[in-house]
Design a protein around this nucleic acid. Sequence first.
DNA 1: TAGATTGTTAATCGATTAACAATC
DNA 2: TAGATTGTTAATCGATTAACAATC
Lengths: 211, 211
Amino acid sequence: MTNRSCVIRLSRYKNALLRLRTLNFVRVFSENLADAAGVTATQVRKDFSIFGITGNRRGGYKVDELIEQLNKILGKDKIQKFILVGMGNLGKALVQYAGFERSGIKIVAGFDIDANKWDKEGPVPICPLEELSEVIRRHEIEFGIITVPDFAAQQVLELMIPAGIRGVLNFAPICVKGPEGCVVNNINLVTELENIIYFVNASEKTQESQQ
Amino acid sequence: MTNRSCVIRLSRYKNALLRLRTLNFVRVFSENLADAAGVTATQVRKDFSIFGITGNRRGGYKVDELIEQLNKILGKDKIQKFILVGMGNLGKALVQYAGFERSGIKIVAGFDIDANKWDKEGPVPICPLEELSEVIRRHEIEFGIITVPDFAAQQVLELMIPAGIRGVLNFAPICVKGPEGCVVNNINLVTELENIIYFVNASEKTQESQQ
DNA sequence: TAGATTGTTAATCGATTAACAATC
DNA sequence: TAGATTGTTAATCGATTAACAATC
């Protein structure tokens, strides 16, 4: 099956392969990718088998071919266009994040209700929220990022969907819900830190009880 | 069992409860929390049972008591101190992110190798990387955030660990590895977007094949 | 009491891992 | 050929869900 974890692993394999290519690796074994992605070699081969990716028994996988196949699966055979709503600290950082452009991800425009944030001259134009729908339609954009405060997040999602957005990454600290057929992933930064705090505390307790 | 997903859900329940409390809710049913967190009522009760949280048959759970218990489990009964390394766009945004302070998470200091980033006068002092170890020890900090470029991430982790850091959230696009007993979670922003792109494309294909 | 909700056990489901035949 | 690695099947493991008794 192709669940979220499996697809996340494919991205990791691809990232590792890009690095190996810069080191002039021509072939790679499942064991190598497993080390780089922090999983087992069996897991790597199983993942590949799900997507019909094959290598050479005894000879591993050719780095170039593997990158090409993973890029195809992950939609990296073309530039993927995003819009972003909410030009707070996080929104500004993401719009400027060089890693996106480098990976074939282009944030076409940012949006905010606050006129002080508008700026059509910069490398990424920041527009009034009223123009959201028009920009999405004009550029035929399917993907969005939400970095507004919690109370505004669901409303923003409901502006995006009818304009044509089909996939959203939401950073507002609330689980927003899209209609059937719309993909929404939520990243809550506080939750991520709480998760780390929990497991550190849990391991402390385990160590104490072992003493 | 207490896996990552389970603890993430606890945070979501807590977030939903904080909202319900501002609406003056006194009691809440597993069904309500399920709706807010996007899971089933059985899942909610199962999660609570794992942590020994009990309610009243017929009467649900008392909001105040539930928040208190979840806060205890998630380590929110005290201020949790973090340091952050890498004052690029993302690092700056996180240091300024108001949601952390609001949730009892305090970033005590930021660090960078670039002298242009140093600033000891701001609300969060930004210090030279050389001072990392000393600051961690002086404030007895256990948690860190990494927002440096990929090539520097593993090195930064290895500076943090001997100074006393036991849990790390890494945003560099590489899976960094800590020693046994050190908790490391990786968030790769590009990977998160690739994941959304994949599932939108996958659902497009499903729809086409159904036509 | 009757009805509704919890708490828990057992069943199901799905993902990971182990084992190993195929084959380069 | 012998040895190493893939690709796949079957077994295991763990998480989610369903069912339902307990009880407020």
